[in-house]
């Protein structure tokens, strides 16, 4: 019962030390994790977005080319892509699985985003690999080959 009635608190100095220790501890935890929280995670999200954006761009481009293919002739088109997503260079793989065209965007750390165009591969399959750090990127089609 004595504890309940005792109304005196800790001394001002002790409280000051206690409070600063708690604050310093909190600050340390935050600063140790800040790289993960403020840099890594947003970068992840941004990379995911940008890679699927690039994959979608490639599939739109391929569909557009497919729409205007000449019966006898050829198309060559140069396109521009950003050199880096997030902070990494990346590779675009064009592959075929059964009747589907697959466009795979792989970053240098191994993060992968795949975009599929269903059914197009039987008519106009596209194969090839593009590295984002090279200067020119091109899709070409030749009906005579």
């Amino acid at each position: 019962m004595k504890m309940l009635k005792d109304e005196s608190g800790s001394s001002l100095l002790f409280e000051y030390i206690l409070f600063s220790l708690i604050c310093i501890g909190f600050f340390m935890v935050v600063s140790i994790n800040s790289n993960e929280i403020f840099i890594q995670r947003p970068n992840e999200v941004v990379m995911e977005d940008e890679m699927s954006d690039i994959g979608n761009m490639m599939s739109t481009l391929i569909t557009d080319i497919y729409l205007i293919l000449p019966d006898n002739g050829k198309i060559e088109t140069e396109y521009r892509i950003p050199e880096k997503v997030g902070k990494e260079t990346y590779i675009i793989n064009a592959d075929i699985a059964y009747t589907d065209q697959i466009i795979e965007v792989v970053s240098s750390s191994g993060k992968t985003v795949r975009v599929t165009i269903g059914g197009i591969a039987t008519t106009m399959p596209i194969n090839g690999t593009v590295s984002s750090s090279s200067t020119y990127h091109m899709i070409s089609y030749d009906s005579t080959r």
Binding site: P42, E50, M57, T60, D64, I68, Y79, P82
Partner: peptide, 21 residues
């Protein structure tokens, strides 16, 4: 943070629009 997210992914899908279909 919002600024970074807006800037990123802004310029990548230009080529599909440039293609003179």
């Amino acid at each position: 943070l919002a600024n970074q997210a807006v800037i990123a992914g802004y310029h990548s899908s230009n080529a599909a629009l440039e293609f003179p279909k």
